[in-house]
Computed example of a mutant assay.
Amino acid sequence: MTDKVIENNQVIIMGKIVSDFEFSHEIFGEGFYMVDVEVARLSDSYDIIPLMVSERLLDVEEDYKGAYVCVSGQFRSYNRHEERKNRLILSVFAREIEFVEELEESSKTNQIYLDGYICKEPVYRKTPLGREIADVLLAVNRPYGKSDYIPCICWGRNARFAGGFNVGERCEIWGRIQSREYMKKIGEDQLEKRIAYEVSVSKLELVEE
């Protein structure tokens, strides 16, 4: 049962560590730390993806900045309570980490597969330039009755297709994790720069149950 649940949320990223480890939380005496990984895009830009690592997986006292890693794990979410609201925090939970000498140009550095349920009415829209976009929120089950809530963004024909999905339908998604900067209004006239994380969808299918 547990293996089947783990199969519904699979991530592989390859990139460069660009920050120090920062303590996140502790469970049953095991400490978990956050570190940022810079993952290249095909377009010469990159995404900064937050990675959650157990202190039993890596020596979190070490400085690994500049080191290249290949990470397999899951894309996870939790709600952090701030300013009287819940904020969805997303990160890649590392199951395995391997140091690599360098990244091959041909290697797929950012892949994700999700199998979950539509938990919010998809939002389909067109940009001023006519590009079709749909936002989908996918609930992906985890062991022990937990779920991860993963925001996904679809484009073009996929967006039109996803716009017709109903809450509760089961959906498989393939794509990549991307980071996106945006300005958040805090207070009357104050803006704060934040980073949102989401799955950019390359393929999706509804699953008949």
Rank of each mutant, 00 (worst) to 15 (best):
V18H: 00
K146N: 01
S54Q: 04
L58N: 04
K146F: 06
K120S: 13
K85C: 14
V35W: 03
M52C: 06
Q111S: 09
K146M: 03
A159H: 02
Q111I: 11
S72W: 05
Y46D: 02
Y33N: 11
G187M: 14
E188F: 10
S77N: 01
D59N: 09
K4W: 07
F99W: 04
E188W: 02
E121C: 05
S45C: 08
E102P: 07
E181I: 12
I6A: 07
V199R: 00
V92D: 00
K203L: 09
E96A: 04
R87S: 15
K16G: 10
F165N: 07
G66Q: 09
F75W: 11
L137H: 11
E22L: 03
D36T: 05
A159E: 07
K185F: 07
L103D: 04
L57T: 13
R160V: 15
G145A: 11
K193M: 14
I150H: 02
P143K: 05
K126L: 15
N9I: 12
L138M: 09
I150M: 01
I89V: 13
Y197C: 13
M183H: 08
E192P: 00
G130W: 10
L191E: 12
N86K: 07
N9K: 08
P122T: 07
Y78N: 13
E61N: 15
E30F: 10
V39Y: 06
E22K: 00
L58D: 08
G130C: 13
V60R: 01
D135R: 03
R157V: 09
E169D: 14
E30Y: 11
E55L: 03
L204M: 15
E172L: 14
C119A: 11
K85T: 15
A139W: 00
I27Y: 06
V39F: 06
Y33F: 12
G15E: 07
D148T: 15
C119Y: 08
V39S: 04
Y124L: 14
E55W: 02
W155P: 01
D189E: 14
K146Y: 06
E55Q: 12
Q178A: 15
M1Q: 08
V92A: 03
R41G: 05
V123D: 10
D63T: 10
A159Y: 04
G163T: 07
D148R: 02
E26L: 02
K126Q: 15
A134E: 06
H81Y: 14
F21H: 00
V136F: 12
E98D: 10
R56G: 10
A94H: 07
S24W: 04
E198M: 09
G15Q: 00
Q111N: 13
S72C: 10
M183Q: 11
S24E: 10
D63M: 07
Y149M: 05
E101V: 04
